[in-house]
Computed example of a mutant assay.
Amino acid sequence: MLDQMGLSTETVTLSPIALFMEADIIVKLVMIGLALASIWTWTIIFSVAGRLRGARRDSEKYEADFWKTDDIDAFYKTRGDDDIPAAKVLSAGVDEWRRSTSNGKLDREGTRQRLSTVMNASVTEEIDRMSERLNFLATVGSVAPFVGLFGTVWGIMRSFSAIAAEQNSSLAVVAPGIAEALFATAIGLFAAIPAVIAYNRFSHKLNMLEARLFRFADGFHATLSRELEKGA
């Protein structure tokens, strides 16, 4: 049945499933790729969020316990192997301290430089390890909108082809193709927006954790430097 404007009054289903099923194979591939990227993005978000929360909490407690101890060697024996970023920094410093002071001839300035180098390297290694999945979030955040836009352009081209084939420019002819095209863009934005937000948030948290670990490394370095001075 046609209304007074010549448009079909039949109801057009615009549910996500219907839009996907009616889409062109190219648009379907775009939708599937973006949906998989979105699922993996959320998996990374929950995983990294938990790791960062645990690393910050455990490192804070570890540092507090360390600064309360009077015996670094005893603390290192019991807590040196903890799987905590701060423990890795402590372990790097203690190992270098033992290597540098095991010889009879002690190079104090060289020891200080080596201690600083190995602990800073340990901090960088821990931050790199915890941020290894963030590149995927950055990629999705920057690429997904353009992939969705590609699906949109393809769907609109298909709509124009339908107009040419049927020689009919009514809304009933072009609406399904345009709806499918816009749905591809929506999926692209659904994948990109959380990825960008999470990437920026996690980058900020990693910067805070990195600064905290560097402060811990500097404090431990100062403690070991004072030990060197006592042996002067």
Rank of each mutant, 00 (worst) to 15 (best):
R226D: 05
L189H: 08
A192R: 06
I193W: 08
S170K: 03
R201S: 01
S169H: 00
L209S: 07
A222S: 11
L189Q: 06
I187Y: 15
S170N: 11
A217K: 13
A198Y: 00
A164I: 03
T223W: 04
A172S: 12
L182K: 10
L189R: 08
L206M: 12
G177Y: 14
F190H: 04
S169R: 00
A165Q: 13
R212D: 15
A222R: 15
S225D: 02
F190V: 15
R212Y: 15
Q167F: 08
A222E: 13
A172M: 02
H221Y: 02
F190S: 11
H204F: 14
F216K: 05
A198Q: 00
N207K: 12
Y199N: 12
L182Q: 07
R212W: 13
F190N: 02
T223I: 05
F190K: 02
F190Y: 06
Y199E: 04
I193R: 13
F214T: 15
D218M: 09
G219M: 03
L213D: 10
P176E: 05
A211K: 10
A211I: 12
S169A: 06
L182S: 05
V174T: 11
M208W: 08
L213Q: 10
A181P: 10
A195K: 00
A195T: 03
A192P: 11
A217R: 12
T185V: 13
N207T: 11
A211F: 07
A191R: 00
A181F: 15
A195S: 14
A198V: 15
P194K: 06
L182Y: 09
N168P: 05
L224W: 11
I197A: 13
P176C: 05
S225L: 01
N168H: 02
T185K: 12
A164Y: 08
V173N: 11
P194M: 01
P194W: 03
P194Y: 06
A175E: 04
V173G: 10
Q167M: 09
F202Q: 10
L189V: 09
L209H: 04
I193M: 08
A186K: 06
M208G: 03
S170A: 11
S203H: 11
K205R: 06
G177E: 11
L189N: 09
S170Q: 03
A184W: 07
T185P: 14
A181H: 14
L189D: 07
D218Y: 04
V174A: 05
A217H: 07
L171R: 09
F202I: 03
